[in-house]
Nucleic acid binder design. Sequence first.
DNA 1: AGAGTTAGTTTCGTAGTAGAATTTATGTCT
DNA 2: AGACATAAATTCTACTACGAAACTAACTCT
Lengths: 396, 396
Amino acid sequence: MRTASPSSPLWNGLTDPARSVALEVLYHGPLSRAELARRLSLSAGSLTRLSKPLLDSGLLIEVGTQLDNRIGRPAVLLDVEPTSRHFVGVKLTGDEAHAVLTTLRAEVVASQRAPLHSHDPDHVVSTVGELVSGLVGHAPDTVALGVSVGGRADDNTTVTSAPFLDWTDVPLGKMASDATGLPCVVENDVVAVTEAEHWFGAGRDCERFALITIGAGVGYGLVVHDQLVGSPDIGTGLAGHISLDPGGPPCGLGHKGCAAAMLTIPAIHAAVSVGLQREVSYDECLDLALRGDPVASRVVTDAGRALGRLIALVGNLTMPHKIILTGDGIRLASVAEDVMLQRIADERDAAASTLDLDVQTFDFFEWARGAAVIAIQKYVLGHLSPATSSPPSPSR
Amino acid sequence: MRTASPSSPLWNGLTDPARSVALEVLYHGPLSRAELARRLSLSAGSLTRLSKPLLDSGLLIEVGTQLDNRIGRPAVLLDVEPTSRHFVGVKLTGDEAHAVLTTLRAEVVASQRAPLHSHDPDHVVSTVGELVSGLVGHAPDTVALGVSVGGRADDNTTVTSAPFLDWTDVPLGKMASDATGLPCVVENDVVAVTEAEHWFGAGRDCERFALITIGAGVGYGLVVHDQLVGSPDIGTGLAGHISLDPGGPPCGLGHKGCAAAMLTIPAIHAAVSVGLQREVSYDECLDLALRGDPVASRVVTDAGRALGRLIALVGNLTMPHKIILTGDGIRLASVAEDVMLQRIADERDAAASTLDLDVQTFDFFEWARGAAVIAIQKYVLGHLSPATSSPPSPSR
DNA sequence: AGAGTTAGTTTCGTAGTAGAATTTATGTCT
DNA sequence: AGACATAAATTCTACTACGAAACTAACTCT
């Protein structure tokens, strides 16, 4: 069924204008040649010329004609064949590795996870290797691997620091590449999720947006002028250190009411568990708050207000067109929606435009999907180092 | 002495690559052709071709050879002739108009101010007209006028709202253009100062920076990816509404401890004057604090801490390479430096890079210079509407 | 003096573009 | 049904701007 061999170039030897055509189609869905010409400010003639080789190589395909046009010749829609290439994304936490196999459009085809019994890089890499080979079985045309971690990554190759794994300067990219035979890129987990929203999610048609994740920590990502704001400080607790409530509980560093101490799953879990003198799961905390339990209600309401404040700060200081809320603990935003919205309104100028909030549903595999998106980006932009050409080592 | 007549095209009919060469020279000082080729990723041959007509037209001039080169043929430096064109910038406040005449590089050549006896747009425009004709006397080659106001400006032509002038939807650009015979651009005052720092100030070699102004209000500007972040919300009190100290005094809208209530000249002036039961000027407030007056010290210390918090928030949420502090009240940052820096450190991750703070000296005419920079930008980018070709009306 | 190095110019082949003319494929109107 | 309008897509030609390479120029170092 599949025609192109995994080693065929496809996205590799493209000229700049040809790549821009392919990219426009990749993230703005099926488009006609005429529409592409308008978007890229090219003549119709140029578009025919540029699209011809892309169609010949199978990178683009014609997918029927436009339905909703009124008069004149119907436009033939061009699209990428999303299943022409596959990608694997892996997210590492302190005790598990989550992996997904995705198409070129970051649609998840299969997923898998495995526990990490140790933080030893060799052990982690071999676990990653097993996950990858399991998933690649579904798609021999897999061309790249992305790995994300909570922490700092340098140059898409090295994990500079990862507190949850107690890692410093681990050359994860090279190690994973050697173990899997796939070119591998490494990135911070929040950056990866931000790019996933940017290219294939709620941030797709948005030249400026911010993303806040609630989970084990508070994550923060920013896209301005259609480009991620990258800083060496990403991966340190930027948003997590922001004080949101001077009367709130202290975090590990003694900051009272900072985001990490008010909004994270562990913080809410701990506050409610202590208050009720029993272990209460995060979801149970939220359920209790909904049912009016006084302890849980107070914790969750305080958290909702703190989240509202954080959102207002981000809104005022980065002027985003949209703020995306996501992460495995984001249910907080629904449960405490009222106080959150009230707090946002309180800290915004009445004349300012209302903030467009976008609460995403979130499954833990989204973290892994983000990692796959980093791999997709590097692949289609031609930034992928040609990988160590070693074949995947036979498992074990 | 001057060769080009004011109406000669010069920056008008440039092709894109030619303009990029001229711009690179404009804001990165004298550069050799070889250096330009490297910076713009062009071949040496292309640079000869591109620079030739720019030199012929007088837009660029050769200004001697490079001093500090070690070996090989010495490089001939190209530069713009900054006095080949002049610009006028005007800043409007509620009771005065400040105006400056600048060169192409935004160097102030002359300045002047006039009181505004009324907020009637016609009166204001005629005052602007008088200031302009006074300044243009020094430089008949003046090619554009920029006007800045505290408030919102749409499309560089209309003042959408300006609280200090009680204006709504005043077509200031057209009116000032008619009155002066110069093409006129209108912009928010903080945006204008931000662009001045961006092109010709501390932000010149910085692809991402934030700017905070302390004055009658608190202003906030942001440049990311070497481009100003523009939003319709600019001109509403974005930064001013941020709550910085829950125990602080309330602002006019009842927000306790918000930036507008803690950091502005009027706020500090009022707090100290009330505390000491006599009128105390802003500078006197700061002097008293330095000399240990308990009332002034407390107000100024609280303000310094609040400023530190604002800076930390901006630093954490926009990850700037630099934060520029400026405005007519910026002496606060020096007087309360210690508490300010302490507060910044408290709200930043220890592993995060230290924030590069740049406190600018500020003269009120800087506001007007910013307006001139907007005019310069529009002129050199070719975005200037060709102006109503009416000659300046003979004054009176 | 001659080798080495960098700056700038000239020439020339080529890639990529726009634009006009043409063909194809629908609609609407009478 | 046929004329006409509209728009998409293709083909062809001319042009432009670029880089590569060869060359000249100016200077340093040995």
